[in-house]
Simulated scan of single mutants.
Amino acid sequence: MTYLASALLSFTIAIPLVLALVRIHKVRTSYFPFMVLLLLAFTTEVASEISLHLTRENTTVSNIYTLLEFGVILWQFYAWGFLRRRRALLILLAAVSFITWVTENIGYGRLEVHFCSASVFINSLIIVFLCINEINALIASFSGHLFRNARFLICMGLMIISIYSLITEGTLLIDPQNAVIDWPIFNIFSFINAFVNIIYAIAVCFIPVRDDYYFSRRFKA
């Protein structure tokens, strides 16, 4: 795959972001963290491209994104209610992620020279379990079509990218010296990322409108 094609696929994140910005004034606030996640991902893509052109590397940008992304995802599960009811678990998960990131990037001095595989692996594992828990709760309580449920679609997108990360980063962690980087699973990231971004775009379209939106519009009219 050419560099241009990979970059274009990465910037498909702009599709759900634009849709989110169009709808941001009327959707429920419990989905704001997800919109922040889209903005963060788009900003990181831009910063990564700038860094690649200026320094020929984007390791630092990627590693910082790993830390911020997980924090926003925890915020999303807090906004949905699960982690709000389990503050101790929220603190534990945040602490595990932060300590792993600091140890790997600051303690071992890898922030600018190596992608933080251990942090990505730990974060992805946590995200998969959080998504499974959320999906199970939806299956038990939601009576409509799950593929029209924004929360379900967001969790599916997060799970797909997290499972991919578990496979790739796990491979690198097990045998970093002899890992086959040109293994096909490493080369399909751009396609998986673009597919997940399309799922996110569909999810944005199904984010519920806040309860007072139509009332406030009628009142203003």
Rank of each mutant, 00 (worst) to 15 (best):
T59G: 05
L9D: 05
S62F: 06
S30G: 11
M1G: 10
I24M: 12
L4Q: 15
L17S: 04
R86G: 05
F42L: 14
R86I: 04
F42Y: 13
L19F: 09
H53K: 15
R23C: 03
Q76G: 05
V61R: 03
T59V: 14
M35C: 13
A47T: 10
A20N: 02
S62R: 07
V27K: 02
L8R: 07
S30V: 11
L68N: 03
L9H: 00
W80A: 00
E69V: 04
A88N: 15
K26P: 00
M1E: 09
F11P: 00
S48E: 10
V36K: 03
V46G: 12
L54G: 12
R56Q: 15
L9E: 02
T59L: 09
V36D: 02
T12Y: 01
M35D: 01
A14P: 06
R87T: 14
T43H: 06
S48L: 12
I73F: 03
G81V: 04
R86Y: 08
F34V: 04
R56W: 15
L19H: 04
V18E: 06
I50M: 13
S48V: 09
S62W: 04
V72E: 01
E69M: 09
L93T: 05
T55D: 15
A5E: 12
F82K: 03
R85T: 07
L74V: 07
V36A: 08
V46I: 15
L38F: 08
E45P: 05
S6I: 11
I13E: 01
T29M: 13
E45R: 10
S62D: 06
H25D: 14
L40R: 07
A14E: 01
L54F: 14
R87F: 14
L37T: 03
T12K: 02
L83W: 00
F11V: 00
M1Q: 09
L74Y: 02
V72N: 03
R28C: 10
V72H: 00
R85I: 05
G71A: 03
P33I: 03
E69T: 07
Q76T: 05
F32H: 10
R87N: 13
L8C: 10
L40F: 08
W75G: 01
L9I: 07
L92Y: 14
P33Y: 03
K26G: 10
V61W: 04
A7I: 13
I15N: 08
R86T: 03
L89G: 06
Y65M: 01
V61K: 00
V36P: 02
M35P: 03
T59K: 09
L39N: 09
R56G: 13
L83Q: 02
Y31P: 00
